[in-house]
Design a protein around this nucleic acid. Structure first.
Lengths: 114, 114
DNA sequence: ATATACTGTTGCAGAACCGTAACGAATTGG
DNA sequence: CCAATTCGTTACGGTTCTGCAACAGTATAT
């Protein structure tokens, strides 16, 4: 149970956005970030269809976001051997590190936020 | 002084991203969001050059983001009459409401976040 | 075996964004 | 008054994302 006033929330959001924009790596889109966080924070397995349903977007959006983030090394794909139609989205070491840094960053800025 | 553990921070970020993706309005890019928050949270005046310097991006990025967000009604432009080379970025009622909703949303989800 | 349903992917045209460079308008300085 | 500077914008070419529709591959049911 965490108390956060709307004004504090915006300040926090602001700092986190600024940090994202200012660093050199290309920004993830909002959709890519939502997918990444879902894969790492919600329990597996994660399929293309499942992610599309949860985010309320079309399947090609998921496929392409996985392409991009796969190249970046943030997620990996593997065929489901039990039902070979499915693709299982898997976590990677790089992705875990990326999100850990993000979490630390937001937490640090929360402390500085009045 | 706000204590927020990295794990909580990611959960909060996740929920906020999901809410952004799922609603119907088109998502703002990370840069657009950073600009919008800066305009509304930092004290005016805001110029194209100043915003570009603060976000460490080029001026055309700011111009285009202002174009897009101007069409959405989230910000407005006005010529600086003291120095007519400058453009002053101004807040709008719609933009204020948009950010207020965003702040409330994050704050609400913070409470639900373990 | 054949038809049906379901998975994820790809093709295509359109829109948005990016970075660099050039530009017109306004101001400042010699 | 004219050159140099500063401001924001626009032009260009390239990349990425989007939405929709069609697609091949796999599983299921008749």
């Amino acid at each position: 149970m965490l108390i956060l006033k709307p004004g504090q929330a915006l300040n926090l959001w602001h700092k986190a956005m600024l940090a994202q924009v200012r660093d050199d790596d290309p920004d993830l889109t909002t959709r890519q970030m939502a997918i990444l966080l879902t894969v790492y924070l919600d329990p597996p397995p994660h399929t293309v269809r499942g992610l599309a349903a949860q985010l309320d977007v079309t399947k090609p959006v998921i496929t392409r976001a996985l392409d991009t983030m796969g190249i970046m090394g943030l997620v990996a794909r593997r065929r489901d051997e039990r039902d070979r139609r499915n693709v299982l989205v898997q976590r990677t070491v790089d992705g875990a590190e990326y999100l850990q840094r993000l979490g630390d960053l937001i937490a640090d800025e929360a402390i500085e936020t009045t």
